[in-house]
Design a protein around this nucleic acid. Sequence first.
DNA 1: CGAGGGTATACCTCGCGTATATACCCTCGG
DNA 2: CCGAGGGTATATACGCGAGGTATACCCTCG
Lengths: 174, 174
Amino acid sequence: MSVPLTLLGLLEREPSHGYDLKRDYDAFFGRGKPLPFGQVYSTLSRLARDGKVVISDVAPGSGPDRKRYIITDLGATEVEQWLTQPVDPEPHLQTVLFAKVVLALMLDRPAAEYLDTQRRAHLHRMRELTEIKRAGSLVDALLADHGLYHLEADLRWIEMTGARLDALRKEVRS
Amino acid sequence: MSVPLTLLGLLEREPSHGYDLKRDYDAFFGRGKPLPFGQVYSTLSRLARDGKVVISDVAPGSGPDRKRYIITDLGATEVEQWLTQPVDPEPHLQTVLFAKVVLALMLDRPAAEYLDTQRRAHLHRMRELTEIKRAGSLVDALLADHGLYHLEADLRWIEMTGARLDALRKEVRS
DNA sequence: CGAGGGTATACCTCGCGTATATACCCTCGG
DNA sequence: CCGAGGGTATATACGCGAGGTATACCCTCG
């Protein structure tokens, strides 16, 4: 998810310190997978080392001193480029599902059954996501839809692969 | 892509040594992203450390001595479980695309333009994948289809998100 | 005074990648 | 025909970032 750039982006809103950044990150991007503290601070120190943020001042708060980080011009440029440049769309033709199917065929396991199990797991998760979408905010709905679309994509692929298992087995066993 | 389990799976076919494993991996799963040597050997030593493979013998070949690795019962069990259990379907509602859109809205950037750029990049890659699918083997076609389905999923999401930018901005700015 | 929350650091393991070492084989110029 | 390079097979060493756990520190409040 590119934690460094996300934190830089949050810092471009306003200067902040580690703990608050973690909270903001969790609120906007965490979605059930909170950012570990260790990663916040190690990322911040790498950003500081590379001149993308600087420590503006150190203020006593409740607990250890807070270090307020400010984004630099270099950091702002980096955020700008990251936002401007598109994500590289599916650059490596690799997927765990495919690896499992190929290995199952190599090892003479029931690949069709495995695909079926996977299909059920996908359908189950789709029901969960549908519920999240129904009950949640707009953000929840958008993220749930993203998941749903991709799960549908997987399902289509599972169907197609299931229909070609015999041919695939021949290609893999050579 | 779970390199450790893929290598374990290849080792279940027959005992082998690092170099050959790398070649098999590249042939079946690499797809333009070859496995670096360093990762092969460090993964193998972790597998050995954890008792999932053992070194059966050391034989001179052309070059340094080859260490032949054999999968253990523990390792075979692990492969079995990995193949049997479905991949966890989209467990964390997180995506770089979403993060970029949210940050663009926070920072008052033209999110709609960014989405448009992303759409073009996706369409471009889809043409590439279509060509790969047309020209390649069955394996290539399956992997290309996987990519294509997921790119379509992204496109749908991009369209929907583009249509909801105003509402999303309100939710993010609060 | 002790519990709990805010805030930070230290440290560990992986994944991933580059660079280097080592041994053998082939070829080609002197 | 010999030896110096160059290619290939095989392995190790090292470096960096991601991700996560454990711990230290200090304040507040019951």
